[in-house]
């Protein structure tokens, strides 16, 4: 009969409408189960798989629960344990980056010899395709994916070209975002460190007889720059945490 299709369609929409209210009355608290209430009216919502339909996420008061592997723009890790950046300026990430949006300048010491630290590290967020290759192939766990997607800005250049200071975050920021991967990584690193130490010790025992190891003090300027970077990173991470919680 003409018109049944139309009625059926309207019926589905109407059922959705009624269901929403029914659901609201019966199970408002229950359906937010697993969601994280961070106070100040901010909730992180985990869509239950057996919930009929979808929960509307009332951004910005509510957020979607991002899976651990979520990727947006990379960040550099400041290792708070050793109090230095993990990046060694090896350049692998710049090599594998498909649109070639990573720029690295290796630092040099006073004598002009290259040292294994980046002096500059840029990522052009107007090019980055969030492909994860830099993270996947970094051998030092120095670059990771940030979950922060709130990067919109009024200006494009240079605001969206992130330099080292803007990219760096402390280790615990990363550990909080990527708990599972972080735990795995720590285990592997501990193991590797133990192996390296064993090797080192064997070597040192051999060499110890000959000469006393001499400590080279790091140049003042480098230290203070590192300190400054770290401060910046901490500050940024704090702001982000505040913004999120």
């Amino acid at each position: 009969m003409f018109g049944t299709g139309l009625l059926k369609g309207l019926g589905v929409t109407f059922k959705h409408l009624v269901d929403t209210y029914k659901d609201d009355m019966q199970s408002t608290p229950a359906r937010y189960q697993g969601s994280d209430d961070r106070g100040k009216g901010l909730k992180v919502i985990d869509q239950p798989v057996d919930q009929e339909g979808l929960l509307t996420i009332q951004y910005p008061e509510e957020r979607r629960l991002l899976p651990e592997r979520f990727r947006y723009i990379p960040m550099l890790i400041w290792d708070t344990e050793t109090d230095e950046e993990r990046c060694t300026a090896c350049g692998i990430c710049a090599k594998v980056c498909p649109p070639q949006c990573i720029w690295i300048t290796r630092a040099t010491d006073e004598a002009g010899k290259p040292v294994t630290r980046p002096q500059d590290f840029f990522i052009d967020a107007t090019i980055c395709m969030s492909c994860n290759y830099c993270v996947e192939f970094c051998p030092f766990d120095a670059i990771k994916m940030d979950h922060d997607a709130e990067l919109a800005s009024f200006e494009r250049f240079p605001h969206l070209v992130y330099d080292k200071g803007e990219l760096t975050v402390p280790l615990d920021y990363y550990a909080a975002l990527w708990p599972v991967q972080y735990a795995e990584e720590q285990e592997r690193r501990a193991q590797e460190a133990a192996e390296a130490r064993a090797k080192e010790e064997a070597k040192a025992a051999r060499a110890a007889a000959k000469e006393v190891k001499e400590e080279t003090p790091a140049p003042e300027a480098k230290l203070s720059r590192a300190e400054e970077l770290k401060q910046k990173a901490m500050e940024r991470a704090r702001q982000r945490r505040e913004a999120q919680s």
Binding site: R64, I73, A149, E150, A152, R156
Partner: peptide
Amino acid sequence: DVYIPGCPPTPEA
């Protein structure tokens, strides 16, 4: 007026 980086920007972004 506003630039949103990301590829693609998520709905939140």
